[in-house]
Amino acid sequence: HAATELTPEQAAALKPYDRIVITGRFNAIGDAVSAVSRRADEEGAASFYVVDTSEFGNSGNWRVVADVYKA
């Protein structure tokens, strides 16, 4: 099962156990969220919340930071 994305309210009520950072070329924010979901799932997380997204220069590469939560 894939890790689910939390709302800001849900994330605020929970304590993350880790923070992950992924970088890559994403065509849309949805693609980045899917990549975070896969990584969170690999780490055994039940859910995640994207904290920050930023573009690296003009290369089209993105850096996505997310907190991950157990259950």
Rank of each mutant, 00 (worst) to 15 (best):
H1K: 10
A2N: 12
A2H: 14
A3W: 05
A3Q: 03
A3L: 07
T4W: 10
T4L: 13
T4D: 06
E5R: 13
E5M: 13
E5I: 08
E5F: 06
E5N: 07
T7P: 06
T7E: 04
T7V: 03
P8T: 14
P8N: 08
P8F: 14
P8S: 14
E9W: 10
E9F: 09
E9H: 07
Q10N: 04
Q10D: 06
Q10K: 06
A11S: 05
A12L: 09
A13M: 13
L14N: 09
L14K: 09
L14P: 02
L14E: 04
L14Q: 12
L14A: 07
K15M: 11
K15C: 14
K15W: 08
K15V: 14
K15Y: 07
P16F: 04
P16M: 03
P16L: 01
Y17P: 08
D18C: 15
D18G: 15
D18T: 11
R19C: 08
I20M: 06
I20E: 02
V21F: 07
V21I: 12
I22R: 00
I22P: 00
I22K: 00
I22N: 00
T23W: 12
T23A: 05
T23V: 14
T23R: 06
T23F: 14
T23C: 14
T23Q: 08
G24S: 03
R25K: 12
R25P: 09
R25V: 10
R25L: 10
F26Y: 07
F26W: 09
N27Y: 11
N27C: 13
N27Q: 12
A28D: 15
A28P: 04
A28G: 15
A28Q: 11
I29S: 06
I29L: 13
G30E: 15
G30Y: 10
G30H: 12
G30P: 07
D31E: 13
D31L: 07
D31H: 06
D31A: 06
D31T: 05
D31G: 05
V33N: 03
V33A: 04
V33I: 15
S34E: 13
S34C: 13
S34L: 15
A35N: 03
V36R: 00
V36C: 08
V36M: 14
S37G: 15
S37R: 15
S37I: 12
S37M: 11
S37C: 08
R38Q: 13
R38F: 09
R38I: 14
R38L: 12
R38V: 12
R39D: 03
R39Y: 10
R39F: 10
R39A: 11
R39S: 03
A40G: 03
A40W: 03
A40E: 05
D41G: 15
D41N: 14
E42Q: 12
E42N: 06
E43T: 12
E43A: 14
E43S: 11
G44Y: 04
G44D: 04
G44N: 06
G44T: 04
G44C: 08
G44A: 03
A45Q: 02
A45V: 02
A45C: 11
A46F: 10
A46Q: 11
S47G: 10
S47I: 04
F48I: 00
F48K: 02
F48S: 01
Y49S: 04
Y49T: 03
Y49D: 01
Y49N: 03
Y49C: 08
Y49F: 14
Y49M: 05
V50S: 01
V50D: 01
V50I: 15
V50F: 03
V50G: 01
V50C: 05
V51L: 07
V51D: 00
D52L: 12
D52H: 13
D52V: 10
D52G: 09
D52F: 13
T53S: 12
T53H: 11
S54E: 14
S54Y: 15
S54T: 14
S54A: 13
E55W: 12
F56G: 06
F56V: 12
F56T: 08
F56H: 08
G57M: 06
G57R: 06
N58T: 14
N58Y: 10
N58Q: 12
N58C: 10
N58A: 13
N58F: 10
N58K: 10
S59D: 14
S59Y: 09
S59P: 11
S59K: 08
G60W: 05
G60S: 05
G60Y: 05
N61A: 11
N61V: 15
N61P: 05
W62M: 09
W62I: 09
W62Q: 03
R63Q: 11
R63A: 07
R63L: 13
R63E: 08
V64R: 05
V64P: 00
V65C: 05
V65M: 04
V65K: 01
A66C: 06
A66I: 12
A66Y: 05
D67Y: 14
D67R: 01
D67P: 00
D67W: 14
V68K: 03
V68N: 00
V68Q: 01
V68F: 15
Y69S: 00
Y69E: 01
Y69R: 00
Y69D: 00
Y69M: 00
K70E: 09
K70C: 10
K70F: 11
K70P: 06
A71D: 14
A71C: 11
